[in-house]
Design a protein around this nucleic acid. Structure first.
Lengths: 218, 218
DNA sequence: TGATAATTTGACCGGTTGGTAAACATTACA
DNA sequence: TGTAATGTTTACCAACCGGTCAAATTATCA
């Protein structure tokens, strides 16, 4: 009997496990560099090292494949923000959030570009994720930041724009990698790049959020 | 005689002027939202309000059209950085650079997305512009920033990463507009959004670059 | 081992894509 | 006004795209 391909009615096969993994890996590679519309199934199949009909046996449509990829990657992608701890020391929480985001930009640039492509092109496939889980998480953390500001632990500032600033500056190194490389040239573009970026961003955010020196003595 | 279409051997006609304008406007709209590969000539022709063969009479290929668009837009896009003045007051130069970039993100989001799409997908069509004119301009301005730091007018910092940070934070509001809107919700997403962003970024960069308080008195 | 289910493949299909050819329409200008 | 150059359209093409189908192959396990 020809069951609906890769049907979840039965337990998943070892082969299913492996092939779906291969496909999603290839899909990440391709979708991240060409966006959804710019990517072709043939291309993904090629990278995955299998024939197009074979790939379509596991994911019936391009959309299905894209969705599966998004679902798998989104959680990981939000982890750094989730770790943001209300109980911690504000300065060091912000510092390590920047670190984590920068590490993700360095170690998982494809994931970053996957989302960047999506959002840039109007987020036609992930709108629900943005207004749902993402917004909820950001709202929660924004409240934490606001409370720190109220307690005088960091400067008063708009928490949402702070989060946007951390996102944009860190993800820049993944999304705009070729530009960064082109501008820095061979000189600064080696290993030290991320270290330099980390140092600068730390200086920027910690300095920018330091509570203004009050005239009163310490 | 059927000259090579829109040949530049003769002076350009009024009609050529108008139609090419129409086409580039439409091309900007389409390329900015779907990237090069994701855009179709039919779509652009449709937005431009003309038939596909008619469009192809003015630009023989999709590549030609894209290149013409890039050439036209790049100069404008770099203007804010060009205005960056070595003779001015550092803090207010940085402040107004941020302003200008933010205004461009607000007023010309399509131009921003056009480049974002290109760079994100590996800059296959604009590599020369990045390593050429862009790098040259950035190198020049980086030197200015470095000299300010040496003179003790702003904190010592990596000028390249500073420029990247200004680019990314400001362009974020154009490129990731849907995400910003999704997260901010209806509440903060009206007119005031850019004002809030400007205020925050000013605070961040001016604070972050303030020369550290030396133990010596003022 | 054999039967049954799971997987893979090649051939194919209708629609879209970038682009062309040639006829037709319009403009500019002597 | 006539005619040559410019501009526009219809019909078309080959390649590509997302996806199907049925046949062939391979894995599973009683």
């Amino acid at each position: 009997m020809v069951l609906p391909r890769a049907a979840r009615t039965q337990r998943r096969t070892r082969i299913q496990e492996e092939k779906e993994e291969q496909i999603l890996e290839a899909a990440l590679e391709v979708f991240a560099t060409h966006g959804f519309r710019g990517s072709t199934i043939d291309q993904i199949a090629d990278v995955a090292g299998m024939s197009k009909p074979n790939l379509l046996y596991y994911f019936r449509t391009k959309e299905t494949m894209h969705r599966a990829l998004i679902d798998r990657v989104l959680d990981t992608w939000l982890d750094p923000l989730r770790e943001f701890d209300a109980e911690g020391n504000p300065a060091s929480e912000i510092r390590s959030y920047i670190r984590r985001k920068l590490e993700m930009a360095r170690d998982f640039p494809r994931e970053s570009r996957l989302f960047a492509n999506e959002v840039l092109q109007g987020a036609p496939h992930i709108e629900d994720e943005l207004t749902g889980p993402l917004k909820a998480l950001v709202d929660e953390k924004a409240e934490v930041i606001r409370s720190w500001a109220r307690a005088g632990k960091i400067a008063k500032c708009d928490p949402y724009h702070l989060i946007f600033a951390i996102w944009s500056t860190t993800q820049h190194y993944a999304d705009f990698d070729v530009q960064v490389k082109a501008v820095l040239g061979e000189a600064h573009s080696g290993e030290g790049r991320f270290e330099d970026a980390a140092r600068f961003l730390e200086q920027l955010f910690i300095g920018g959020l330091a509570v203004a020196q009050e005239p009163s003595a310490t």
